[in-house]
């Protein structure tokens, strides 16, 4: 169940899902750079395009309820502190909306990009840099992603088992130390099993794995993003 909480990717037949992760990453970078210099009109233009993107992607806002509460609070804090600093409502609103756009970018990327596809795309990119083993970096990221749910599930197992045995420790230091050693011990066992399973399937971290190919979707996404960014700087 930890998997459902950590990874938000949903496979869909949309432009955003089909695009190469590196291009999506580039698009986010372009928009973020434009957001730095854009006025309120520009920020609103970027926000509108992101909201339309979220609509096309059918972003499940209700799944992000807990996170959105936290981000809304942060947005309110930004609005307040900017207003207190500059006494300018428009400036404060721009700063808050800027933050909102960055969060929405992140949500769209998480929803439209499989983490392992992103790892492979980055690996293939890094491979072009001399002395950098991009394939190893990509394998490390992919393995970490597959281990993360194991870590959360193992932690939950240990905590639940202790609760069931009515464990109550008043000393937080002792509680954390005791819990950590159990979780670590369990994780080592699971890691060893995973390592054997990987070896049994002839895993080689330095082997280059195919990533998503570049396509017309990437060109369209990049063009669209660049036009929006340029438009936001003009407004």
């Amino acid at each position: 169940m930890a998997e459902a909480l950590i990874f938000h990717y949903r496979e869909q037949r949309t432009l955003l899902c089909r695009a190469n992760p590196v291009i999506k990453f580039l698009a986010v970078l372009i928009l973020c750079l434009a957001l730095i210099r854009a006025s309120l009109g520009g920020v609103l233009l970027i926000m509108l395009s992101l909201v339309i993107g979220a609509g096309v992607q059918k972003l499940p806002i209700t799944h992000y309820k807990r996170e959105l509460r936290f981000f809304t609070l942060l947005m309110a804090m930004i609005l307040l502190t900017e207003y207190l600093a500059h006494q300018d409502l428009l400036l404060s609103a721009t700063a808050a909306l800027r933050f909102f756009c960055i969060i929405l970018c992140g949500m769209l990327i998480a929803d439209a990009t499989a983490p392992d596809d992103l790892a492979r795309a980055l690996g293939n990119l890094l491979d072009r840099i001399p002395f950098v083993h991009g394939a190893v970096v990509a394998s490390t990221i992919e393995l970490t992603l597959s281990i993360l749910p194991l870590i959360f599930d193992a932690s939950l197992e240990v905590v639940t088992a202790r609760k069931a045995r009515l464990e109550r420790r008043k000393n937080p230091y002792r509680a954390i130390t005791s819990l950590s050693s159990s979780i670590f011990s369990l994780l080592l066992d699971k890691a060893q099993e995973l390592s054997l399973a990987l070896e049994a399937r002839n895993f080689d971290p330095s082997r280059k794995r195919p990533g998503l190919p570049y396509s017309a979707s990437d060109f369209m996404l990049l063009t669209f993003t660049t036009l929006i960014a340029a438009g936001s700087l003009v407004l």
């Binding site: 990987l198 399937r201 195919p210």
Partner: peptide, 23 residues
């Protein structure tokens, strides 16, 4: 292996099956 959970590497069923073939 006995524990199916620790053998899963791919993010989807298809990717998990492809893993061995890529190796």
């Amino acid at each position: 292996f006995q524990d199916a959970d620790t053998q899963m590497v791919g993010q989807t069923v298809e990717k998990d099956i492809r893993f061995g073939m890529e190796n």
